[in-house]
Amino acid sequence: MVHALRQAHRVLKPGGLLIDLRPAPAHRRVGIVSGGRYRRLGTTAESLDLDRAAERAVRRVRRAGLFRLETGIRFDCQRVLDTPADFRAWVEEMATRRAASSHDRLIGRVERAFARARTARKLIMQGPVVARALRRLDPRLTS
């Protein structure tokens, strides 16, 4: 991660901006919308180790004088899925990237909620995302 940040520093023009956009280290809320009403079904249980490692990498390059944090915005980002099969596929894909405990119980709740809903329904996953702007510095000038 630090190497990627150093590469970003290299290809940026002097004074350019690095935009670090990624999920905040938090589990995502999962719920169903049916008949215009939202009902929460649970939260995902993902490993947050990668998020914490990314935080450490950014702190390291800031300490090295490569970047200065200019601003950061936190906002909720939604993912909308149409079927329980979509949710199952997302869980399986996510598990290949982030160690995660079993989501079988949550998948079961999603399937039952879809089966019970009589009107059009969709699944909403929601979690915080952080966008940070880091200004490229010249470490020779900042040290």
């Binding site: 970003a8 290809v11 940026l12 023009k13 350019g16 901006l17 690095l18 990624r22 990314a54």
Partner: peptide, 21 residues
């Protein structure tokens, strides 16, 4: 790959790490 960018030094005004770090 982020760790081995083929672009020259000082090529971009902005670099976006798109859920990539």
């Amino acid at each position: 790959r982020a760790e081995r960018l083929a672009h020259g030094a000082g090529s971009f005004d902005l670099v976006v790490l798109s859920w990539a770090l």
